[in-house]
């Protein structure tokens, strides 16, 4: 019995430690960004001007860059991922599905720096050639992010479809629905919560992705909606500047990290909201 008790305490310690780590990270980032709020001020922090030398610490360009590249990554990655999931679960013969599933799993294991490298060497010059721009920017970042969210969305999407009761498909087919009609009118609507969760988790990955984005986004502080103009994201700006920042500059970076953290938390809460609605 004593042994049971020790194991229980050990597990409890593990759980508490993880929770404590998360809490401390949050508190630390909040504390470090506090000077930014008091000394730099919210209006300056969220303005469009980023000139740390002149005391301008506006993150708007990076915030927009993060949101646009995430959106772009999902616009490309989500349909591709959902399509692949449907193909794996409903269309592909089982041997072919296994090969593709392995391939997608492999994609999930590729370090982001490798995907970024690929983006830098192949994608950026390609975009430069067809658009006549420098090639860096949101468009390149979106494609790179699409590749990175693909495994998440595909794997979770396929899992959602596989967990649907087979009776649903039988009912639809027996009504005379074709395979495509069954997918579109029965299976996808029945799995929409799970697919939405897959997309939101993919979004979480896209928002936080740093290395691959930093390599292709151009790292300028220019506020732009043009996907072929170099710009920056919250993550790329953090990683580019964190080495040399002191004082207010450093505090401004922490404020950006805080905003990033809050964005991710909003996503996590929205997942809980989606899944809770399903259970109700």
């Amino acid at each position: 019995m004593a042994r049971e008790k020790y194991i229980k305490m050990l597990l409890m310690a593990c759980a508490s430690l993880s929770f404590l780590a998360i809490l401390l990270i949050f508190l630390f980032i909040f504390q470090e960004s506090l000077p930014a709020i008091t000394r730099i001020g919210i209006p300056n922090l969220f303005s469009a001007a980023w000139n740390p030398d002149k005391g301008q610490y506006g993150m708007l360009a990076f915030l927009i860059g993060t949101l646009l590249s995430t959106l772009g990554g999902l616009l490309i990655g989500a349909p591709l991922g959902i399509g692949t999931a449907v193909f794996l679960d409903q269309v592909a013969p089982s041997r072919m599905a296994n090969v593709i599933r392995r391939g997608v799993e492999l994609l999930a294991g590729i370090p982001s720096v490798v995907i970024g490298w690929f983006g830098l060497i192949i994608l950026v010059p390609f975009i430069a050639r067809i658009t006549g721009s420098a090639g860096y920017g949101i468009a390149a970042a979106s494609v790179v992010l699409a590749v990175m969210v693909l495994p998440t969305i595909t794997a979770l999407g396929a899992e959602t479809l596989r967990s649907l009761p087979p009776e649903l498909k039988e009912a639809s087919v027996a009504m005379g629905a074709t395979r495509w009609q069954t997918i579109r009118k029965v299976l996808l609507p029945a799995g929409k919560e799970g697919i939405l969760v897959a997309v939101v988790l993919g979004m979480g990955r896209a928002i936080g992705e740093t290395m691959a984005v930093q390599m292709v986004v151009g790292n300028s502080s220019q506020l732009t909606l043009n996907p072929f103009q170099p710009t920056g994201t919250l993550t790329s700006n953090l990683v580019t500047n964190m080495g040399e920042a002191v004082g207010n500059f450093r505090a401004a970076l922490f404020a950006q990290a805080l905003v990033l953290l809050i964005l991710s938390m909003i996503l996590i809460v929205s997942i809980r909201f989606i899944t809770r609605k399903k259970e109700a």
């Binding site: 039988e170 027996a174 009504m175 005379g176």
Partner: peptide, 20 residues
């Protein structure tokens, strides 16, 4: 086959309404 299944409907062992 689609035409066949329109003419020949089926009810299953376990009730399987769509989640609609």
């Amino acid at each position: 086959v689609v035409g066949l299944r329109k003419r020949v409907g089926m009810v299953f062992q376990k009730p399987n309404p769509f989640p609609k």
